[in-house]
Design a protein around this nucleic acid. Structure first.
Length: 291
DNA sequence: ACCGCACCCTGAGCGC
DNA sequence: TGCGCTCAGGGTGCGG
Protein backbone atom coordinates (compact mmCIF):
# COMPACT_ATOMS: atom_id res chain seq x y z
CA UNK A 1 0.00 0.00 0.00
CA UNK A 2 1.77 3.09 -1.16
CA UNK A 3 1.84 5.69 1.59
CA UNK A 4 4.11 8.69 1.95
CA UNK A 5 7.41 6.74 2.01
CA UNK A 6 6.55 4.57 -0.97
CA UNK A 7 5.35 7.58 -2.96
CA UNK A 8 8.49 9.52 -2.05
CA UNK A 9 10.77 6.64 -3.06
CA UNK A 10 8.81 6.35 -6.29
CA UNK A 11 9.18 10.07 -6.89
CA UNK A 12 12.94 9.99 -6.42
CA UNK A 13 13.51 6.97 -8.61
CA UNK A 14 11.05 7.73 -11.41
CA UNK A 15 12.07 11.38 -11.74
CA UNK A 16 15.23 10.64 -13.76
CA UNK A 17 13.09 8.75 -16.29
CA UNK A 18 10.50 11.47 -16.61
CA UNK A 19 12.26 14.81 -16.37
CA UNK A 20 13.32 16.61 -19.51
CA UNK A 21 12.13 13.91 -21.91
CA UNK A 22 9.43 14.72 -24.45
CA UNK A 23 6.42 12.45 -24.31
CA UNK A 24 5.76 11.00 -27.74
CA UNK A 25 3.25 8.22 -27.16
CA UNK A 26 0.48 7.89 -24.58
CA UNK A 27 -1.30 4.55 -24.31
CA UNK A 28 -4.19 3.95 -21.94
CA UNK A 29 -6.79 1.35 -21.07
CA UNK A 30 -10.51 2.04 -21.51
CA UNK A 31 -12.29 4.84 -19.70
CA UNK A 32 -13.03 4.07 -16.06
CA UNK A 33 -13.20 6.03 -12.86
CA UNK A 34 -9.44 5.44 -12.63
CA UNK A 35 -9.17 8.22 -15.20
CA UNK A 36 -10.45 11.41 -13.63
CA UNK A 37 -9.46 12.92 -16.95
CA UNK A 38 -10.90 10.78 -19.75
CA UNK A 39 -8.23 8.82 -21.68
CA UNK A 40 -8.90 10.61 -24.96
CA UNK A 41 -8.37 13.99 -23.38
CA UNK A 42 -5.37 12.74 -21.41
CA UNK A 43 -3.67 11.43 -24.54
CA UNK A 44 -4.18 14.74 -26.31
CA UNK A 45 -2.97 16.73 -23.33
CA UNK A 46 0.22 14.77 -22.72
CA UNK A 47 1.49 14.14 -26.24
CA UNK A 48 4.48 16.36 -27.00
CA UNK A 49 4.76 17.60 -23.40
CA UNK A 50 7.79 17.44 -21.13
CA UNK A 51 7.77 17.15 -17.33
CA UNK A 52 9.78 19.91 -15.70
CA UNK A 53 9.64 18.54 -12.15
CA UNK A 54 8.15 15.77 -10.10
CA UNK A 55 6.70 16.79 -6.77
CA UNK A 56 4.97 14.94 -3.97
CA UNK A 57 2.13 16.22 -1.83
CA UNK A 58 1.00 13.62 0.68
CA UNK A 59 0.42 10.53 -1.41
CA UNK A 60 0.01 12.45 -4.67
CA UNK A 61 2.66 12.81 -7.35
CA UNK A 62 2.44 16.01 -9.36
CA UNK A 63 4.38 16.64 -12.55
CA UNK A 64 4.33 20.23 -13.81
CA UNK A 65 4.59 20.12 -17.60
CA UNK A 66 6.28 22.53 -19.99
CA UNK A 67 2.99 24.18 -21.04
CA UNK A 68 1.99 25.05 -17.48
CA UNK A 69 -0.40 22.13 -17.10
CA UNK A 70 0.08 19.37 -14.55
CA UNK A 71 -0.12 15.60 -14.51
CA UNK A 72 -1.36 14.26 -11.17
CA UNK A 73 -1.00 10.62 -10.13
CA UNK A 74 -2.24 8.73 -7.09
CA UNK A 75 -1.22 5.11 -6.56
CA UNK A 76 -4.21 4.18 -4.41
CA UNK A 77 -3.70 0.81 -2.80
CA UNK A 78 -2.22 -1.32 -5.52
CA UNK A 79 -0.76 1.26 -7.88
CA UNK A 80 2.67 0.65 -9.38
CA UNK A 81 4.68 3.24 -11.29
CA UNK A 82 7.77 1.83 -12.91
CA UNK A 83 10.19 1.71 -15.79
CA UNK A 84 9.29 -0.52 -18.73
CA UNK A 85 12.85 -1.81 -18.55
CA UNK A 86 12.29 -3.64 -15.28
CA UNK A 87 10.36 -6.62 -14.15
CA UNK A 88 9.42 -8.00 -10.78
CA UNK A 89 7.43 -10.94 -9.48
CA UNK A 90 5.11 -8.34 -7.96
CA UNK A 91 4.01 -7.33 -11.44
CA UNK A 92 2.64 -10.82 -11.95
CA UNK A 93 -0.30 -12.60 -10.40
CA UNK A 94 0.63 -15.02 -7.64
CA UNK A 95 -0.28 -17.94 -9.89
CA UNK A 96 2.18 -16.72 -12.50
CA UNK A 97 4.89 -16.06 -9.95
CA UNK A 98 4.93 -19.59 -8.68
CA UNK A 99 8.30 -21.28 -8.82
CA UNK A 100 9.82 -18.77 -11.19
CA UNK A 101 13.22 -17.47 -10.24
CA UNK A 102 13.32 -13.65 -10.42
CA UNK A 103 15.85 -13.78 -13.23
CA UNK A 104 13.49 -15.98 -15.22
CA UNK A 105 10.81 -13.31 -15.28
CA UNK A 106 12.05 -11.14 -18.08
CA UNK A 107 10.07 -8.72 -20.14
CA UNK A 108 6.94 -7.86 -18.22
CA UNK A 109 4.30 -7.35 -20.88
CA UNK A 110 1.67 -4.68 -20.25
CA UNK A 111 -1.54 -6.37 -19.16
CA UNK A 112 -5.13 -5.19 -18.71
CA UNK A 113 -4.11 -3.51 -15.44
CA UNK A 114 -1.42 -1.38 -17.06
CA UNK A 115 -3.53 1.75 -17.44
CA UNK A 116 -0.99 4.31 -18.57
CA UNK A 117 2.11 4.00 -20.73
CA UNK A 118 4.24 7.00 -21.53
CA UNK A 119 6.72 6.63 -24.38
CA UNK A 120 9.37 9.23 -25.16
CA UNK A 121 11.11 10.63 -28.20
CA UNK A 122 14.35 8.83 -27.40
CA UNK A 123 15.31 5.18 -27.21
CA UNK A 124 15.05 5.01 -23.41
CA UNK A 125 12.54 3.05 -21.37
CA UNK A 126 8.89 4.01 -21.04
CA UNK A 127 7.13 4.94 -17.81
CA UNK A 128 4.25 2.63 -16.96
CA UNK A 129 1.51 2.80 -14.37
CA UNK A 130 -0.26 -0.37 -13.34
CA UNK A 131 -3.07 -0.76 -10.84
CA UNK A 132 -4.99 -4.02 -10.48
CA UNK A 133 -7.63 -2.63 -8.15
CA UNK A 134 -8.00 0.75 -9.84
CA UNK A 135 -8.11 2.66 -6.56
CA UNK A 136 -5.42 4.88 -8.02
CA UNK A 137 -6.08 8.02 -10.02
CA UNK A 138 -4.77 9.82 -13.06
CA UNK A 139 -5.68 13.45 -13.53
CA UNK A 140 -4.57 16.20 -15.88
CA UNK A 141 -4.92 19.81 -14.78
CA UNK A 142 -4.96 22.59 -17.35
CA UNK A 143 -2.69 25.59 -16.70
CA UNK A 144 -3.97 27.42 -13.63
CA UNK A 145 -6.57 24.77 -12.84
CA UNK A 146 -6.91 23.55 -9.26
CA UNK A 147 -8.34 20.40 -7.82
CA UNK A 148 -10.26 19.97 -4.56
CA UNK A 149 -8.37 16.76 -3.80
CA UNK A 150 -5.10 18.65 -3.68
CA UNK A 151 -6.56 21.77 -2.12
CA UNK A 152 -7.88 20.01 0.93
CA UNK A 153 -4.58 18.29 1.85
CA UNK A 154 -3.18 19.21 5.24
CA UNK A 155 0.50 19.71 6.05
CA UNK A 156 2.82 16.96 4.86
CA UNK A 157 3.25 14.34 7.57
CA UNK A 158 7.05 14.68 7.34
CA UNK A 159 6.99 18.31 8.38
CA UNK A 160 3.82 18.55 10.50
CA UNK A 161 4.43 19.58 14.09
CA UNK A 162 3.04 18.19 17.31
CA UNK A 163 1.40 21.56 17.89
CA UNK A 164 -0.47 21.29 14.59
CA UNK A 165 -1.60 17.79 15.47
CA UNK A 166 -2.70 18.93 18.92
CA UNK A 167 -4.70 21.82 17.47
CA UNK A 168 -6.36 19.57 14.89
CA UNK A 169 -7.35 17.00 17.50
CA UNK A 170 -9.18 19.34 19.89
CA UNK A 171 -12.91 18.72 20.21
CA UNK A 172 -12.64 15.77 17.86
CA UNK A 173 -14.42 12.70 19.12
CA UNK A 174 -13.07 10.35 16.47
CA UNK A 175 -10.31 7.88 17.30
CA UNK A 176 -6.81 9.34 17.08
CA UNK A 177 -6.02 6.65 14.49
CA UNK A 178 -8.80 7.96 12.24
CA UNK A 179 -7.51 11.51 12.69
CA UNK A 180 -4.02 10.46 11.56
CA UNK A 181 -5.52 8.93 8.44
CA UNK A 182 -7.45 12.12 7.59
CA UNK A 183 -5.48 13.64 4.71
CA UNK A 184 -6.87 17.08 5.55
CA UNK A 185 -5.15 16.87 8.95
CA UNK A 186 -1.90 15.22 7.87
CA UNK A 187 -1.07 14.41 4.28
CA UNK A 188 0.62 11.12 3.53
CA UNK A 189 -0.16 8.86 6.48
CA UNK A 190 -1.83 5.52 5.72
CA UNK A 191 -2.73 2.49 7.76
CA UNK A 192 0.75 1.02 8.19
CA UNK A 193 2.54 4.14 9.37
CA UNK A 194 -0.35 5.32 11.53
CA UNK A 195 -0.17 2.05 13.48
CA UNK A 196 3.63 2.16 13.67
CA UNK A 197 3.69 5.78 14.87
CA UNK A 198 0.97 5.18 17.48
CA UNK A 199 3.02 2.31 18.88
CA UNK A 200 6.15 4.43 18.84
CA UNK A 201 4.35 7.16 20.76
CA UNK A 202 2.63 4.78 23.20
CA UNK A 203 -0.88 5.91 22.25
CA UNK A 204 -3.71 3.45 21.75
CA UNK A 205 -5.30 3.87 18.29
CA UNK A 206 -8.86 3.82 19.66
CA UNK A 207 -8.34 6.74 22.05
CA UNK A 208 -10.55 9.75 21.31
CA UNK A 209 -8.46 12.37 19.52
CA UNK A 210 -9.50 15.08 21.99
CA UNK A 211 -8.09 13.01 24.84
CA UNK A 212 -4.60 12.86 23.43
CA UNK A 213 -2.40 15.28 25.35
CA UNK A 214 -0.12 17.96 23.98
CA UNK A 215 2.95 15.93 24.99
CA UNK A 216 1.57 12.84 23.30
CA UNK A 217 0.91 14.86 20.13
CA UNK A 218 4.55 15.90 20.17
CA UNK A 219 5.57 12.28 20.60
CA UNK A 220 3.23 11.25 17.78
CA UNK A 221 4.60 13.85 15.37
CA UNK A 222 8.15 12.78 16.23
CA UNK A 223 7.30 9.08 15.87
CA UNK A 224 5.67 9.75 12.50
CA UNK A 225 8.75 11.57 11.25
CA UNK A 226 11.07 8.85 12.52
CA UNK A 227 9.04 6.01 11.03
CA UNK A 228 8.44 7.74 7.69
CA UNK A 229 12.08 8.81 7.26
CA UNK A 230 13.36 5.35 8.15
CA UNK A 231 10.97 3.78 5.67
CA UNK A 232 12.14 6.13 2.91
CA UNK A 233 15.73 5.16 3.76
CA UNK A 234 14.93 1.48 3.39
CA UNK A 235 12.96 1.91 0.16
CA UNK A 236 9.44 1.71 1.62
CA UNK A 237 7.31 -1.29 2.55
CA UNK A 238 6.86 -4.04 -0.03
CA UNK A 239 4.19 -6.03 1.75
CA UNK A 240 2.09 -6.99 -1.20
CA UNK A 241 2.13 -4.95 -4.37
CA UNK A 242 4.56 -2.14 -3.89
CA UNK A 243 7.71 -2.14 -6.00
CA UNK A 244 10.22 0.59 -6.60
CA UNK A 245 10.18 2.09 -10.12
CA UNK A 246 13.44 0.25 -10.68
CA UNK A 247 11.84 -3.07 -9.76
CA UNK A 248 13.60 -3.20 -6.41
CA UNK A 249 11.55 -4.06 -3.33
CA UNK A 250 11.53 -1.93 -0.23
CA UNK A 251 12.68 -3.40 3.07
CA UNK A 252 10.74 -1.54 5.73
CA UNK A 253 8.28 -4.42 6.12
CA UNK A 254 11.09 -6.17 8.03
CA UNK A 255 11.18 -3.34 10.57
CA UNK A 256 7.47 -3.19 11.32
CA UNK A 257 6.70 -3.39 15.01
CA UNK A 258 2.93 -3.83 14.97
CA UNK A 259 1.34 -3.75 11.51
CA UNK A 260 0.26 -7.24 10.49
CA UNK A 261 1.78 -8.79 13.63
CA UNK A 262 -1.45 -9.65 15.47
CA UNK A 263 -0.80 -12.24 18.17
CA UNK A 264 2.96 -11.92 17.91
CA UNK A 265 4.89 -10.54 20.89
CA UNK A 266 5.39 -6.79 21.24
CA UNK A 267 9.05 -6.10 20.54
CA UNK A 268 9.17 -3.82 23.57
CA UNK A 269 7.32 -5.80 26.26
CA UNK A 270 6.52 -9.19 24.66
CA UNK A 271 2.76 -8.82 25.26
CA UNK A 272 0.81 -10.38 22.37
CA UNK A 273 -0.25 -7.67 19.92
CA UNK A 274 -3.93 -7.11 19.27
CA UNK A 275 -5.98 -6.14 16.26
CA UNK A 276 -9.10 -4.00 16.27
CA UNK A 277 -11.11 -2.44 13.49
CA UNK A 278 -11.26 1.34 13.72
CA UNK A 279 -13.02 3.34 11.05
CA UNK A 280 -13.19 0.26 8.81
CA UNK A 281 -9.38 -0.07 8.95
CA UNK A 282 -7.57 -2.80 10.83
CA UNK A 283 -5.47 -1.42 13.65
CA UNK A 284 -2.62 -3.22 15.34
CA UNK A 285 -1.40 -2.28 18.80
CA UNK A 286 0.19 -3.41 22.03
CA UNK A 287 -2.38 -3.41 24.85
CA UNK A 288 0.37 -2.81 27.39
CA UNK A 289 2.62 -0.19 25.74
CA UNK A 290 -0.25 1.79 24.25
CA UNK A 291 -2.72 3.43 26.62
C1' DA B 1 -20.40 20.24 11.85
C1' DC B 2 -19.23 15.90 12.69
C1' DC B 3 -18.97 11.09 12.26
C1' DG B 4 -19.71 6.31 10.56
C1' DC B 5 -20.04 3.68 6.78
C1' DA B 6 -20.92 2.06 1.88
C1' DC B 7 -18.76 2.07 -2.26
C1' DC B 8 -15.35 1.53 -6.07
C1' DC B 9 -12.17 -3.04 -7.52
C1' DT B 10 -9.54 -7.50 -7.96
C1' DG B 11 -6.59 -11.00 -6.06
C1' DA B 12 -5.21 -13.76 -2.15
C1' DG B 13 -6.36 -16.98 0.98
C1' DC B 14 -9.39 -19.68 3.23
C1' DG B 15 -13.06 -23.38 4.15
C1' DC B 16 -15.68 -26.92 2.37
C1' DT C 1 -8.44 -29.64 -6.82
C1' DG C 2 -11.63 -26.19 -7.40
C1' DC C 3 -15.13 -23.29 -6.38
C1' DG C 4 -17.12 -19.51 -3.86
C1' DC C 5 -16.87 -16.62 -0.09
C1' DT C 6 -14.55 -12.99 2.64
C1' DC C 7 -11.22 -9.70 3.36
C1' DA C 8 -7.93 -6.04 2.29
C1' DG C 9 -8.12 -0.71 2.09
C1' DG C 10 -7.44 5.11 -0.02
C1' DG C 11 -10.42 8.37 -0.65
C1' DT C 12 -14.98 10.17 -1.61
C1' DG C 13 -19.55 11.09 -0.68
C1' DC C 14 -23.80 10.38 1.57
C1' DG C 15 -27.03 9.65 5.33
C1' DG C 16 -27.94 10.12 10.16
Amino acid sequence: MPELPEVEVTRRRIAPLLLGRSIRTVATTSPSYFFLTPPVRLRRALAGRRAEALERRGKYLIAPLDDGSRLVLHLGMTGQLFSSAVTSPRLLRAAARGGLAPEAQHGFAPDEHTHLRLGFDDAGPEVWMRDARKFGKVLWLAPGASDPRLDRLGPDALTASGAQLFAASRRRRIAIKSLLLDQAVLAGVGNIYADEALHGAGVRPSRAAARVTRVECERLAAALRRVLLRSIETGGSSIRDYIGPDGIDGAYQDERRVYGRTGEPCLVCATPLRRRVIGARSSHFCPRCQR
